[in-house]
Design a binder for these strands. Structure first.
Lengths: 196, 196
DNA sequence: TAATTTCGCTACCTCAAGTATCGATACCGA
DNA sequence: TCGGTATCGATACTTGAGGTAGCGAAATTA
């Protein structure tokens, strides 16, 4: 009952898609890394991937969705390590800080987030396909309610992206440590739970 | 020795500029509020202000700089109220949260910040003309070193913008209170000072 | 072999930032 | 009163990027 291929029919007819998604993701990150988000046009990404622009638009309906899928592929699920809530939070913060520091990822992250601000459909996609899975995973692992986890994400990701956006560089380890320390104290200390 | 008009020559020759800056700022905020940042084109802003687009480009070299000036005008300096560091920080956080919640301001803030991510010249302008004045003002008022004030700004503004960007709504008061509580505890408690 | 779908390619549309140019207007100094 | 100068509004334009349309060719299934 594996269903790796389909539910009803074995495979759809016609020429199958070539397996270039990974190549496109790699081309996306390296182009964003070298040229920045705005200058990483779909034309350039396609050229670097050795693929036609129309092929990209056949698979992803917009640049924003391409970036979202690329980030999901690059990040994967949170590697939950550690026993207690404090250790889980701390490792999560260090994990996402390291990921945002990897070439291309931070820029793509900030870029698609920026686009979403004035693009409500993209914002819904970003919220549903990107934030929600991590939120649910963290709600389970941390045993915290939705509003507290959303607050956690806002603080951690918001801070890291703001630093990246203002300086062009990822946050240094010492500041990441301070961020983790601040957040852990907040969630450990019982006062003012954060959210209605 | 007032020199309200000039230092050397009384006034530059030619037709003086009409005093429409305030009108343009108001048109910018209302257009951004109604249409979002990306759809608030310079054409539309000019039309709403009752001014030609070329007039805007004669005064601001780019849309980004127009937004920066508009935000500086809308925000003004931090209204430093309260005696101790804790009160100053708390009132500053509530002040910027309220400002970001005003119609148009949060969107313009997030939009120009987003643009700056992949536009290094705009990033320098944003950093020098926008962040630096507030940073210096806060360094003076709070008696904290540069790196700690930068960390403070990253956390507060980053969190508020992330919430605004993901939900389209400003952060609710209860969460702003939690943010203030968390930050105050961090700066009051002596552990892990945040920054090298 | 026929149907179907993807492929690369080229050309195109739309929209927005920013530029160029024009006659008209407002202010200065002589 | 008359140049000189810089702004004004208006129109047209250039450039770049997201996204679409239509083509013949290739790959797969039935």
């Amino acid at each position: 009952m594996l269903m790796t291929r389909a539910t009803a029919s074995a495979r759809p007819p016609g020429r199958p898609r070539s397996g270039v998604n990974a190549v496109v993701f790699a081309a996306t990150l390296s182009t964003v890394h070298e040229l920045g988000y705005a200058r990483a046009t779909v034309d350039r990404i396609a050229a670097r991937a050795g693929v036609a622009k129309t092929t990209i638009y056949r698979r992803w309906p917009s640049k924003g969705e391409l970036i979202v899928d690329c980030l999901l592929d690059a990040l994967g699920p949170v590697p939950l390590e550690g026993a207690g809530q404090a250790e889980l939070m701390s490792s999560t913060i260090r994990w996402i800080a390291a990921k945002i520091g990897e070439p291309g990822i931070g820029d793509a992250f900030a870029g698609v987030f920026s686009d979403a601000v004035s693009d409500p459909p993209l914002r819904k996609i970003l919220s549903a396909r990107f934030q929600d899975p991590y939120r649910l995973q963290l709600q389970d692992a941390l045993g915290e309610p939705e509003n507290r986890v959303l607050f956690f994400i806002d603080v951690v990701v918001g801070t890291l992206l703001h630093r990246m956006g203002m300086t062009g560089e990822p946050m240094a380890d010492a500041d990441v440590a301070a961020l983790a320390d601040m957040v852990l104290r907040h969630f450990a200390g019982g006062a003012d739970p954060g959210g209605t």
